[in-house]
Computed example of a mutant assay.
Amino acid sequence: MTGLVIGSGVDVPGEPVTLDARRFNRHTFWCGQSGSGKTYALGVVLEQLLLHTELPMVILDPNADFVRLPEAREDASAAEAARLAELDIRVLRSSGDSPGDSSGSSGDGSGKSPAGRLRARYVDLTPASKAALLQLDPIADAEEYNVLLRAEVRAENFDSAGALAAFRQSSDPGEVRLSYRMENLQVLEWDLWSRGAGSVVDVIDQRPRATVMDLGGFTHPAESKVAALAVLEHLWTRREDRKPILIVIDEAHNICPPDPQTDVERALTRQLVQIAAEGRKFGLWLLLSTQRPNKIHPNVLSQCDNLGLMRVNSPRDLKELAGVFGFAGEDQIRRSASFAQGQALFAGGFLSEPTFVQMGRRITEESGGDVGVPLRGGR
């Protein structure tokens, strides 16, 4: 099945609207302001991809909106629920076991790490990413940077306390200085590190249909970004395998902002710019969701060939969208300012012409909904 039914026509009520699943081999930009129904609607599309294609996906989920993706709603049809139950959907969380992890495995086949934990290996990062994590400049911190380049540590025997002790006792001044930097920044104490056990990249290499990375809940604000960097870097390193995967990034402005501020943010943005520019031919396809186009790095935004647009009121944002996505008319894009919740404009390669859609129902449970206003007297 190549047609994914995502809803019905706004201008032709009751007429099903389908997206061509084959055209998700292009980068997609998904945009809508708060309250437009953007996350719910994105779930509709992801569900259809899960049910009607074999395309694996990894979902970077900062607000735990998709952690219940393995769970069918009570009003889902028996066929939909049965199909969903067959799918290998892994949910990895920053702490605790995930109720949505349908695999029951550690992700590395070793049984060493608890099921459902989002963990990465420090030693799997490239030297450049480790340097970004440790705020090292290759020129200003030449000796310490060189220690990173020369270090050969295997994942199965890496021990942070032992590494610090060995560097501290070394006769090499660069290693001693690096030990102080590691200890002062406390990066080796993060909960993110698997410490010799399974890593999120092991899970992804097993090719489940979906891997949901719940990026919220880490103690240090950089941990979620490093988790994303570890995955994107790994996928790019393995790009010659040419195994297709859809990389879904919700609240994408947290991952590829136009003006990254920290070394880790700059490394993450560089990697995404590279994937946006060159990843398509290797089967690395992006689906980026955010509230405003100017919150995404322009070199990533400009590579998107599909558009899903929900309500956007800002004239400045509408003008920018019309300039970037010329395959949708300016009048059509401007109409999004009057959309009701759940209405969207779809344009680009995955349908024959720009189309206004009333999004269909979800078949999986949604998480992360709005918090209601408490009323007096239980009303």
Rank of each mutant, 00 (worst) to 15 (best):
R207N: 13
E80Q: 13
I204P: 10
Q33F: 11
G369V: 09
D202C: 03
N25I: 04
F325N: 05
S336G: 09
G14K: 01
A115D: 15
Y145D: 09
V248R: 02
M1E: 14
G9P: 05
L272R: 01
P315K: 02
G96K: 06
F24N: 00
G37N: 11
R121A: 15
K319Q: 12
P221L: 05
N306E: 08
L307T: 02
D124G: 13
L51D: 08
T2I: 10
A155G: 14
L55H: 01
T53I: 00
S224Q: 14
L118T: 07
V12N: 14
V58L: 05
V123K: 07
M310S: 15
S179H: 02
S194T: 10
V123S: 13
L215T: 00
V203N: 11
R209F: 07
E143H: 09
A163R: 10
V10Q: 13
R207G: 11
C31H: 03
M359H: 08
N63Q: 10
K130V: 07
R119H: 11
T53P: 02
I275A: 02
A140H: 08
E54A: 12
G217H: 02
G43F: 00
L134A: 12
Q291G: 04
L232D: 03
E365C: 07
A132E: 06
R270G: 11
E47A: 02
Q271K: 14
P173Y: 01
G377A: 12
Q186K: 11
D370H: 11
A82Y: 04
D159Q: 07
P244Q: 04
V312S: 07
Q271W: 06
P298N: 09
A155M: 11
S34E: 09
I204V: 13
F66Q: 11
M359F: 12
L46Y: 05
L284H: 06
K112T: 10
E223D: 12
V44K: 01
D97C: 13
L4Y: 03
E15G: 10
S77M: 09
F29V: 08
L42M: 15
D331G: 12
G104Y: 01
I249E: 11
N157V: 08
P173N: 03
D20A: 06
W30Q: 00
D263T: 04
P16Q: 04
T269F: 06
R22F: 06
P138I: 01
D214A: 15
R68P: 04
E233W: 03
G9S: 14
V231N: 07
D159V: 06
D159T: 08
I139P: 10
C31E: 08
A267H: 03
F339W: 08
S36R: 01
G43W: 01
G348I: 00
A340D: 12
Q186A: 15
L268E: 04
V373G: 15
Q48T: 01
V45M: 01
G43D: 05
P374Y: 07
V187Y: 04
L235E: 04
P221N: 05
L133C: 05
A197C: 12
L272W: 00
D101W: 01
E152D: 13
H253S: 12
A328C: 09
G14P: 02
T2A: 14
Q274C: 10
A165R: 12
G7A: 05
R209S: 15
D88K: 04
R334G: 10
R334T: 03
V312C: 15
S113D: 10
